[in-house]
């Protein structure tokens, strides 16, 4: 054919520094997303287990919250690691998304997804929605900027009364609805995220593949059920 195309141009050059080059590479960036994501999965699970102590009563939950506060430098170390994981996870995924859009400049007129899911195609959006929620969640329950009156809640032992703070917060149906929606996006994000972590880290194989992807989905929706059960029981008046 007499027609010629411009030969594919190199759109990326790698640094001589292996650490920078690792981050520049597609798989390197994805490994960083997977590792930070795995850490966040552990956090989300641990946080849920802590929250579920509300069912054990006021004393249990307040004692647990008090214990965390007493950790001092360990708590701060955890917070710094957690914040770094969140920042790295978001920055790398935004960079990956920009590269992905550049790699597909022209979309198909007819699109018929064969195996991708709504969850897998909307990872960047569900992720960004979750981080918006996390900011509000911190303002509400950790920093208590939106509700300064929470600061004056104390139980008989003089500890901060987390138990009543949570009940007061979730008694407002709109706050609970917003919370449930955010957890829904989190669970959707995780339902693709779990399996993706194993694939990107190269530990997925044919023997465990189906178990991992189904197990990941089950775990995501269990996390959803766990978190959302709290505002529901509060709204139903089962916890006072």
């Amino acid at each position: 054919m007499a027609l010629a195309t411009v030969p594919p141009t190199r759109v990326k050059r790698f640094s001589a520094n292996p650490f920078i080059a690792f981050y520049q590479s597609s798989i390197g960036k994805k490994i960083i997303v997977a590792v930070s994501g795995l850490y966040l999965i552990f956090f989300v699970t641990g946080h849920l287990l802590g929250n579920l102590e509300i069912y054990l009563g006021q004393d249990h939950l307040n004692a647990y919250a008090n214990l965390l506060q007493q950790l001092g430098p360990i708590l701060w170390a955890e917070r710094i690691i957690l914040l770094s994981a969140v920042v790295v996870h978001i920055v790398a995924t935004i960079q990956l998304t920009i590269e992905n859009q550049a790699a597909k400049p022209k979309k198909y007129a007819v699109s018929k997804p064969q195996s991708s899911t709504l969850a897998s195609r909307t990872m960047i959006y569900t992720g960004l929605l979750v981080i918006c929620f996390v900011v509000y969640h911190l303002l509400q329950f950790t920093l208590m900027w939106t509700n300064p009156e929470y600061r004056n809640l104390h139980d008989e032992l003089g500890r901060h009364d987390v138990y009543h703070m949570v009940i007061l917060g979730f008694r407002q149906p709109l706050i609970s609805l917003f919370y449930a929606a955010a957890i829904f996006f989190l669970a959707t994000h995780l339902s693709h995220g779990f399996e993706s972590v194993t694939q990107t880290l190269g530990i997925n194989n044919r023997r465990i593949g189906r178990f991992i992807s189904n197990g990941g989905r089950w775990l995501s929706w269990l996390i959803f059920a766990g978190y959302v059960s709290i505002p529901i029981t509060i709204l139903l008046g089962l916890i006072k």
């Binding site: 990326k12 997804p113 993706s196």
Partner: peptide
């Protein structure tokens, strides 16, 4: 091969398995 693939402007796998 991964470096060549990245340099040529192929995108990043997001595990859709299309």
């Amino acid at each position: 091969m991964v470096r060549a693939m990245d340099e040529l402007g192929f995108g990043n796998c997001t595990n859709h398995y299309e």
